[in-house]
């Protein structure tokens, strides 16, 4: 059970958005294979604090794979080598004794670095603000069962809605494209009758905002889907394309 491993970490350190960053190498010993990756980072930081050095800054919050706060590009993969999970759920049993682990921040022009491994993903919020909602005010809505929604449709909408907004899709994409994120929201709302009403407007507004914020163009490599911790399918991108094109041809 209580197996431990020794590791070498190459961690990207960068004091601020404008500062020049570089890799620092740290040795860390006796890491329990039952600990999570972030707990391993905690141990590293405790070690740094004990040496009176500044700990590594990284984003994290719920540590149960749902808030989407944790990031980190670990050994060439956003959220590390294990599939369908976030960094906080990545466990050290996925690594070998003596291994070198390279930890980098998300790299995308639309996600500027704040410090060390922490990036600013505010662009995703701005895309949602541009149209990722249904225009309803509180109160005065019909009964929840007023419009039946087929189970398959509700389930597919739920699959799209499971996006946690972590940014792994754009981080993994060689084009720095945010299409999977945008598609997940557009598709979720386009599938449901409540969202369909303003589907055309939403698709145009969100895509325009995405382009404006400097994300790249989707070339359908599928890297986003492969690295998405929630397994959101690129079939939603097809739906976004369809929604967008139909909307444009209707103009």
């Amino acid at each position: 059970m209580d197996k431990t491993i020794n590791l070498t970490l190459k961690v990207w350190r960068q004091a601020g958005p404008k500062a020049k960053g570089k890799f620092e190498t740290y040795k860390i010993d006796n890491v329990s294979t039952d600990s999570s990756f972030l707990e391993m980072m905690d141990v590293l930081n405790e070690q740094l604090v004990a040496e009176r050095k500044e700990p590594v800054a990284f984003d994290h919050d719920c540590r149960e794979g749902i808030c989407g706060m944790c990031s980190m590009y670990i050994n060439g993969h956003p959220h590390g080598p294990d599939g369908e999970i976030t960094t906080c759920q990545l466990h050290m049993r996925n690594f070998n004794d003596g291994q070198t682990i390279t930890i980098e921040p998300w790299r995308s022009a639309a996600f500027p670095i704040i410090k060390d491994l922490m990036v600013d993903r505010g662009a995703y919020d701005k895309i949602i603000q541009a149209g990722g909602y249904v225009n309803v005010n509180t109160g005065g809505v019909p009964d929840g069962n007023a419009i039946p929604i087929g189970k398959d449709i509700a389930d597919e909408a739920m699959d799209a809605a499971s996006c946690i907004g972590c940014g792994a899709c754009a981080a993994a994409c060689k084009n720095g494209s945010a299409m999977l994120f945008v598609a997940a929201k557009v598709s979720q709302l386009a599938l449901l009758p409540q969202g369909k009403v303003e589907g055309a407007h939403r698709a145009k507004a969100m895509v325009a905002k995405m382009d404006e914020l400097g994300f790249g163009n989707c070339t359908n490599t599928g890297a986003c889907e492969a690295e998405c911790p929630k397994n959101v399918s690129i079939s939603h991108i097809a739906r976004l394309n369809r929604e967008f094109l139909v909307a444009k041809f209707q103009d």
């Binding site: 909602y133 249904v134 309803v136 509180t138 109160g139 809505v141 019909p142 009964d143 929840g144 069962n145 039946p148 929604i149 087929g150 189970k151 509700a154 389930d155 909408a157 739920m158 809605a161 979720q188 709302l189 449901l192 409540q194 969202g195």
Partner: peptide
Amino acid sequence: NGIIDQCVAQGVPFAREYGGLL
């Protein structure tokens, strides 16, 4: 009860039965 209605109107994909009801 109003909360459920509100969330459905916002596009929250609650689980549904095969008949389409919540």
